[in-house]
Amino acid sequence: MRSKVLSAGAESLAEYEILEMLLFAAAPRGDTRPIAKSLIKEFGSLAKVLTASPEALRKVDRVGDATIATMKVAETLGVKLLRAKTEKRNVLSSWQALLEYCQGIMGHREIEHFRILFLNNKNHMIADEVQQTGTVNHTAAYPREVIKRALELSATSLILVHNHPSGDTTPSKADIAITKEIVTAAAALGIKVHDHLIVSANESTSLKSLGLM
């Protein structure tokens, strides 16, 4: 596989082969192909393997701490590469990179995460924080906590983001309602909410573009 990567590029590898090479770092003297195939079979894709929780990974036969640590390092590396495309940039003019970042860090999650991107007066991201996590189809958001954190960070604007594990990014009535609550609370303190993005592994929806905020 090493020769294949050097001659044809890493994109020539199947997902289980990429995982096999990653796992070789955790078990350099073992045959990592069976574990790689088991993980892909269990979670469905390489992305879902990398974003799986340690608890879920540990349930797969022969997966131990070394393998889990390798998966989490690989996941973090991917996040950092995606975030690098948005750092020290006006995220409103780097919208595609922002969407790729949000989908990369949240699109494959099995439960809903509600996160806030805090921006300064140049629309540079100064913080990216998960405010709440929930179930497979619901997470709660608290406007008071969102605004409190924005003030602590001296943020002048926000972008709201959450994922729909179902894959359907159509906003629910609850999504629309909480967006309006946060927009109202933020406006009272001079903080602008640019958008609320709903993402999945394969698509994204902007509430602003739908005229819902």
Rank of each mutant, 00 (worst) to 15 (best):
A188W: 02
K192F: 13
S3R: 10
A174M: 07
P171F: 00
A177H: 13
A140Q: 09
G64L: 07
L160D: 10
A27E: 08
R109W: 02
S45G: 13
M106Q: 11
P28S: 03
I111G: 01
L151Y: 04
D65H: 06
D128Y: 01
V5H: 06
G30R: 02
A127M: 08
V79P: 03
S157N: 09
L23H: 01
A26Q: 00
G134L: 03
G107K: 05
A36L: 02
T135K: 12
L117T: 05
D61I: 04
S94E: 15
G211L: 03
A127Y: 01
K41N: 13
G134E: 11
I18M: 08
M71E: 10
T32A: 04
K88D: 15
T67H: 14
P165L: 06
A155F: 00
L158S: 08
C102W: 01
A14K: 14
A97P: 12
A188N: 12
E112N: 13
T32H: 01
M21N: 10
E55T: 14
R2N: 10
S172V: 09
L77D: 06
I191A: 06
R89V: 15
N90Y: 02
G78S: 04
D168A: 05
I116H: 01
G44A: 03
Y142C: 04
R109I: 07
L99A: 05
A185S: 14
L98E: 15
T184S: 13
T179L: 06
H194G: 08
A36S: 10
R33D: 10
L151F: 01
P165D: 02
E15Y: 09
M71S: 11
F114E: 11
H162Q: 13
A56K: 14
P171V: 01
E100T: 09
T51M: 13
G190D: 07
G44F: 01
I18G: 02
N90A: 06
A155E: 03
E110W: 02
I35H: 01
S172A: 10
I116D: 05
D31W: 00
R2A: 10
A187W: 02
K80S: 12
G107H: 02
Q131N: 12
A52S: 15
N137C: 10
T170L: 05
V60N: 03
M71C: 15
S7W: 04
R144C: 05
F43C: 03
S206L: 04
H124V: 08
R62A: 09
K4W: 06
